[in-house]
Amino acid sequence: MNFVSTCGHILSVEERIILKNSCIILRDENRLEKVQLWGKILGLTSNYFIVQGKGKDLLKDNKIFYSLNGIDWQLLLPTSSEILEKVPYIRGRFTGDPSYHQNVIIVDWEDEGEDKQEQVKEEDRLSAIVTLIDRDTAAVPRGAVLLTPQGEVIRNRSFEGLSFSEATKLHSYLHFRPTSKKSDLKHLRPQADVDVALDFLEPISNDVPQGCWSVQVEEFNTIVLRNWWWPGMTFYHIPATSYYGQLYIGSGEPIMDLPFML
């Protein structure tokens, strides 16, 4: 938490203690390998604490839980493609009530551009936003995870961190999500320094528009990455160590005008 405090939002001492204890209980009750804090989405009346449970395969065996008090947790069900399509049309903050239904105005271009009003449950919107933020910002330093011959993604126990020089370069960080562009991997393999077990993920340096990521050197040479699509997302890595992580604390609203601001 100390490494991401420069994002402008921090958790209180009371929140840290509550979350630390409840995450241990949540991990044991659900027989997970690890439970880590994903972040906090700020609502008008209540905030959503989000944690991520990891299984044996770090990329596939994931469970997301949310809580309004940091003690009582609810499983956040995977979102549907239909909800993912509607979420960009939702404007305004989260209320903090999972059962609240928000109105969505969708333009149906197949019906002469007529506006249609639908409703989306806030719990479904929450699931979609967490999915979108993870898709755009979840990252790992190159070499931190391995792809086994069995196709499982596991932690690389021999990872000792990036050098300071490499840690300041965007291409040293990879999206922690299933690879969608096979052509990227085919382009990488001819390079002499590429390892198939390490370079199975997409580098964040390919993201568009250019400039949507920033790299900064903070106190004690900690490297901090921020994604400007989602203000409040902060990733950190301490060079020459295995310490890295990220946290999102924000309203859950993307900056849709970012391409025009860069």
Score class of each variant (00 low, 15 high):
E122I: 10
S183R: 11
R135H: 10
S163N: 05
K169L: 07
V153E: 02
L146C: 07
L174V: 02
D136W: 12
L174E: 00
P178K: 01
G161D: 04
N156K: 04
R177F: 12
K169D: 05
R157C: 02
P141G: 14
V120W: 06
S165M: 00
L132P: 07
L162V: 05
H175S: 11
Q117K: 10
Y173P: 02
R125V: 02
V130F: 03
E112I: 04
Q117A: 09
Q119G: 09
F159S: 01
G113H: 07
I129W: 09
R189Y: 11
G143I: 08
V130M: 11
E112W: 07
A167T: 00
T148F: 13
T168Q: 12
H171F: 05
Q150C: 14
K186M: 02
S158M: 05
A139L: 14
P190Y: 06
L126M: 08
G143L: 10
P178M: 03
S180Y: 06
K116I: 10
F164H: 08
E123M: 11
L146H: 03
L126A: 05
E123L: 14
P149S: 15
L147E: 14
P190L: 06
R142H: 04
D124T: 08
F176R: 00
Q150A: 15
R125Y: 03
V153S: 02
V120T: 06
T137F: 04
